[in-house]
Amino acid sequence: MDIGLLGPFLISVDGLSVFVELAPKPRAVLATLVALAGEIIPVSALVREVWGDAPPVSALRNIQTYVLQSRKVLARVTGLHPHTVASELLVTRPGGYTFNDTAAQFDHRQYKELSRIGQRVLRGGGVEEGISLLSRSLEVWRGAAFVDVMTGPALGSLRHQLEESRIGTIEALSEVKIGIGRLDEAIFDLAPAVSDNPLHEGLHYQYMRALAVSGRRAKALEVFNLLRLNLVSELGIEPGAPVQQLQHRILNSLDLGHTAPYPPSTGRMAPVV
């Protein structure tokens, strides 16, 4: 069984993918248990995930109902007997519930493992293998994480972590492609990421570099101007020094062949929105 959270919530069994059909609250409960598979999730944490700090008096009973509904969906999708689902898949533990992390493959874990190995391989000098691994990790994504799930504190935090990791993977992949002259591929990777993250300076920096090195300096300057407009109007700040310095080099037609990647230690990467 394969379970996908990087895009619409779906479950695949024997090659057949089925979107999880649950109302928003039970969907959030099941998604939380799946996202944190292998951990015992206290009922109190599930209550907080669904209702925040204002749960109804029936919250505990409702959580039990949502777990029961989730088990019915799992039984229908997998073909397992409901008792088997309850004893081996979505299991009741003292004080909470756990989803068996050995019973399925999870796309968010697959992504993280491929990205981790890919970046390690790149650091070791394995350029082509590293590019392949990072590309495969990004192909795991079918859309935004938890795109059709109501998120509370736990899922919201995990979604932010995953999206930031995805951006870091795109930056690492584009950096190595720019370095070996595969500029069109880097531009292709960066264009949608920049569009989806209009305040993220690191992505814009890499996009400007790829465009400028490929000879599209006017387009690179347009990217800078749009980033500046968004940062000033949304956050009231100017682009950071690295981006401004890159703009200066492009404006003055200076050599960009050895321009460094965006420095992660500057703390100027705007939050994902």
Rank of each mutant, 00 (worst) to 15 (best):
E49M: 06
H83S: 15
Q105Y: 12
S137T: 06
T78Q: 12
G124L: 05
A104T: 07
L74D: 09
L74Q: 12
E49R: 06
G79S: 07
A144S: 11
F106K: 01
S44V: 03
H83P: 00
G118R: 07
H81Y: 14
L90N: 00
L133S: 06
E129K: 09
H108P: 00
G126I: 08
Q64L: 10
V85Q: 13
S137F: 10
L74T: 03
G124V: 03
L89F: 14
L114R: 09
N62W: 14
A45M: 14
H81P: 04
I131L: 13
L74H: 03
N62S: 15
G79K: 08
T98N: 01
E49C: 08
D101M: 07
V77G: 03
H83Y: 14
V121G: 02
P56H: 12
Q110H: 14
N62A: 15
T102E: 15
R71F: 13
S87Y: 03
P42C: 02
R93V: 06
E139S: 11
R136V: 02
V91H: 11
R123Q: 12
A45S: 14
E139H: 10
A103Y: 08
P56I: 08
V77L: 12
E113Q: 11
Y111Q: 04
H81D: 15
E128L: 07
Q119I: 04
L134F: 11
H83F: 12
